[in-house]
């Protein structure tokens, strides 16, 4: 009597990784992200006040967002901050990457120095720069020391300067990440390409435009996507440095959502704002991913 040998396919099926391995992360993700996000998106179309029954009110919350000066200026500030920090961070980050790309002793000291602020809590960075920008703070003291007293001002207290002061703070913290991503991209470019082009008589600028920039495309995509989405969600630094002021000059959507929900209890309205924020983030992500995919296709 011989045992029937199970087929190899049968063995493989019996030895499959069991589904329950994914149960815990999926369950936690479902409870913490999926269910609350779906519920939040639904509440945006209701008059829900946090307790008791609620009615469907269609797009009324979104119409209220559109005629609410605070919401409109928060949306404007958020987009301005996301765009400006992304732009400055990329120009500065790429310059630093090009300057620090070669392996020298000086560069091996400077690279981590530029990356260090990225490891600090954004709240902590906000506190540091709140001091620097304060009326009796470091920036004004330096201006006095070099006899530029005319430029002294409460940087975070004036509507004209507050938003740019915040933008600079964000760039200071995160430019190191942009830099290391560009360095990784630069180091993936074979030096032979530059050598061959140089032998063919291409100048440095031309080689940068024709070789470096096109081959950096994936790094550029990541370096635009990450700070832009991060910029759309700015909250910690704003709350610490300006609390959205003066007036609503530096109020962001994320800060307004927090206030509407947890200070004023306007739950339905806050979720409508959150839906607007989600759409902004999703559109940005889709544009970037489409750009990444089209560039990665072989021409």
């Amino acid at each position: 009597m011989t045992a029937v040998a199970p087929s190899p396919a049968g063995i493989r099926r019996a030895l499959q990784v069991p589904w329950w391995f994914v149960a815990l992360p999926l369950g936690l993700y479902g409870l913490v992200v999926i269910y609350p996000s779906l519920a939040g998106a639904l509440y945006a179309f209701t008059d829900w006040s946090g307790i008791g029954a609620f009615r469907w009110i269609g797009l009324a919350n979104f119409r209220a967002v559109m005629i609410d000066d605070e919401a409109v200026s928060s949306l404007g500030n958020t987009v301005v901050l996301a765009l400006s920090t992304t732009l400055i961070q990329n120009m500065l980050g790429l310059s630093l990457a090009l300057a620090l790309n070669r392996r020298t002793r000086l560069n091996s000291v400077l690279r981590p120095l530029f990356l260090a602020p990225a490891l600090l809590a954004p709240v902590v960075v906000g506190v540091i720069w709140q001091y620097i920008y304060s009326p009796e703070g470091a920036l004004n003291a330096i201006l006095s020391a070099v006899h530029l007293d005319a430029l002294r001002r409460p940087w975070l207290g004036l509507a004209d300067t507050a938003i740019w002061s915040v933008a600079l703070t964000v760039v200071w913290q995160f430019v190191g990440i942009t830099m290391v991503i560009y360095i990784a991209g630069l180091q993936a470019i074979a030096p032979e390409l530059h050598e061959a082009a140089a032998i063919d008589g291409s100048g440095a600028l031309r080689r940068f435009r024709d070789i470096t920039l096109p081959l950096l495309a994936p790094a550029i995509t990541v370096n635009v996507l990450l700070p832009f989405i991060g910029g759309l969600k700015l909250f910690d630094q704003i709350l610490v440095m300006t609390a959205g002021g003066p007036g609503y000059a530096t109020q962001t959507v994320a800060l307004m959502i927090y206030r509407q929900a947890f200070t004023f209890g306007a739950f339905a309205y806050s979720t409508a704002l959150a839906v607007v924020l989600t759409v902004l983030v999703a559109v940005a992500a889709m544009i970037q991913l489409a750009a990444l995919r089209s560039r990665e296709m072989p021409a």
Partner: peptide, 20 residues
């Protein structure tokens, strides 16, 4: 489904999550 979570802002579900 997990990848979608990379882009959904935390703000969207924060009130229902707080209640939960």
């Amino acid at each position: 489904l997990f990848l979608i979570g990379l882009t959904v802002p935390q703000q969207l579900g924060i009130v229902p999550l707080f209640q939960l």
